[in-house]
Amino acid sequence: MKEERYQQIEQQITPKAPVAFNMLKAFLVGGSICAVGQAISYFYIIFFNFTEKTAGNPTVATLIFIAMLLTGFGLYRRLGQFAGAGSAVPVTGFGNAVISAAIEHKTEGFVLGVGGNMFKLAGSVILFGVVSAFAVALIKTILVSLGVISW
């Protein structure tokens, strides 16, 4: 059996991901999570005197709390299987990555297990967020001080 022939057979038989259907599911679920976020931020604006600008923080915290419950009861895994990026891209997906790792490594104790592994999935998001934010802000600050652009 030639390796090239195998590659052809493998390509023929492997099912293609249903991209259009997956996109639709991601759109509906992701959009719904954001709409729920919008409702939560109205809740904070109306009842707790937050403004449109500051309501983002408590909204995010609330969504992560909901993600904790869904993760703990094994529901976020099923949502993720259905929605793909629709449940991974919203901040609840970030919460799920942290919380699922924390729950999983509970058996190794709270210091070595939970503490040491909590960010094993979500750590890269923080890393690249910080590095890229630093780079972007640095470039912009230098350009402003050179007078090329203004704030």
Binding site: T14, P15, A17, N22, T71, G72, G74, Y76, R77, R78, L79, G80, Q81, F82, A83, G84, A85, S87, A88, G93, N96, A97, I99, S100, A101, I103, E104, H105, L121
Partner: peptide
């Protein structure tokens, strides 16, 4: 792979 409760989408394969 991932922690049991991590919501990643598995392909049909």
């Amino acid at each position: 792979r991932y922690p049991i409760d991590y919501g990643a989408q598995k392909p049909a394969t």
